[in-house]
C-alpha cells in the first residue's frame, strides 16, 4: 500500500470516527485504535500515540466552546486533574512493561464498558448536600440552564478523586480519553449534574492526554505520517458532528448503532489480544 492510499483510508475512517464520536458523545479515539491495528495492521504503539493526539484535538476544540458557556466547573476540573495527570503519567510508564496483547484486551474491555455507559439514561440530579471537602476546595458551583442559574453541591470528593486516578492510568495506558470513566466518577460518585460532569470531563481529557503524550512523544509512539490523517480526520468529523447536533436532536438509534459497532470492534480487539495477534 502506498503512503497516499494509506493516508486517505485513515483520513476517511477518522472522519467518520470523529463524526460518530461527537454525535454520540463517546469521542472519536474509540474507533481509531481498532481501525489502525485490525484494519491496517499498524503496530498498537503507533495507534495509541495517534489516538492520544486526536483525543487532545477534539477535547480542546469542544472544551473551548463549553468553557465559554460557563457550564464547565473549572475549579473542580483543576482539582481532579491532579489525579488524572498523576494517573496518566503512571499509565504511560506502565505501558512499557505491559505486553501489547494485554493492552489490546484491556482496551476492548474499556470500549465495551464505554459503549454500555453511552446507552445509559441521563437524568439531571441536583444535590444540595454539605460536604466538608467540597466546601474547603470551593467545588460547589452553579450552571446556566433554560430555567435560570442552578446551584449544585459536590459529594464524596475523596471517592471521586480515587476514581479519577484510575481513569488517568487507563488514559495513559491505552491512549483514550476515558471520558466514560470520568463521567461515571462525577455522575454516580460525586453526584454532579450531568451537563456539568460531561463538559468538565471533556475539559480534563486534554490535560490528561497531554500528560501521557509528553512521554509517548519521546518514546517515538507518535509517528507524524500516521498521526496526521488521524488528527485531521477526527477533528473535521467532530466539527461536522457538532454542526449536525445543533440542527437535530441526538437520536437514540444512532447511539445504538455506534454502541454495537464499538462492541464489535472491542470483541475483535479482545479476540486478537487473546490469540496473541496484537
Amino acid at each position: 500500500m502506498s503512503v497516499l492510499v494509506f493516508t486517505l483510508i485513515i483520513l476517511i475512517g477518522s472522519y467518520f470516527a470523529g463524526l460518530l464520536g461527537s454525535l454520540t458523545g463517546l469521542g472519536g479515539g474509540f474507533v481509531i485504535i481498532p481501525l489502525l491495528t485490525l484494519g491496517l495492521h499498524v503496530d498498537i504503539h503507533y495507534a495509541i500515540g495517534a489516538s492520544l493526539v486526536s483525543v487532545i484535538a477534539t477535547s480542546s476544540g469542544s472544551a473551548a466552546a463549553y468553557v465559554r458557556e460557563g457550564i464547565t466547573n473549572i475549579r473542580l476540573g483543576m482539582f481532579l486533574e491532579i489525579a488524572t495527570t498523576a494517573g496518566a503519567m503512571t499509565g504511560a510508564i506502565l505501558a512499557v512493561y505491559i505486553p501489547t496483547h494485554y493492552i489490546a484486551i484491556l482496551l476492548g474491555v474499556i470500549l465495551i464498558f464505554s459503549a454500555v455507559m453511552s446507552l445509559r439514561k441521563k437524568s439531571e440530579q441536583i444535590v444540595k448536600h454539605k460536604n466538608q471537602w467540597a466546601e474547603k476546595l470551593k467545588l460547589n458551583s452553579s450552571y446556566p440552564t433554560a430555567q435560570g442559574t442552578v446551584n449544585y453541591s459536590v459529594t464524596k470528593v475523596g471517592g471521586g478523586f480515587v476514581m479519577m486516578l484510575f481513569a488517568g492510568v487507563l488514559s495513559g495506558l491505552l491512549g483514550v480519553g476515558s471520558g466514560a470513566l470520568k463521567v461515571l466518577a462525577m455522575d454516580t460518585i460525586m453526584r454532579i449534574p450531568f451537563k456539568v460532569s460531561t463538559t468538565t470531563s471533556n475539559f480534563m481529557i486534554g490535560v490528561t492526554a497531554a500528560a501521557s503524550a509528553v512521554v509517548y512523544l519521546q518514546r517515538g509512539y507518535i509517528d507524524p505520517g500516521i498521526s496526521m490523517p488521524v488528527v485531521v480526520g477526527v477533528l473535521l468529523g467532530a466539527l461536522s458532528g457538532s454542526k449536525i447536533l445543533v440542527h437535530t436532536q441526538s437520536s437514540g438509534w444512532l447511539r445504538w448503532v455506534f454502541a454495537v459497532v464499538v462492541a464489535f470492534l472491542a470483541s475483535q480487539m479482545i479476540y486478537n489480544g487473546i490469540i496473541g495477534k496484537i
Binding site: 493526539v53 487532545i56 484535538a57 477535547s59 480542546s60 483543576m78 486533574e81 486534554g206 490535560v207 492526554a209 497531554a210 503524550a213 509528553v214 512523544l217 507518535i222 507524524p224 505520517g225 498521526s227 496526521m228 488528527v231
Partner: peptide, 17 residues
C-alpha cells in the same frame, strides 16, 4: 512540520493550565 504541529497541539492544554 507535522511533528511541530503535534507538539503545539500537545502544548495547548498545558498552556491552558
Amino acid at each position: 512540520i507535522i511533528q511541530f504541529g503535534i507538539i503545539l497541539l500537545i502544548a495547548t492544554p498545558i498552556l491552558r493550565v
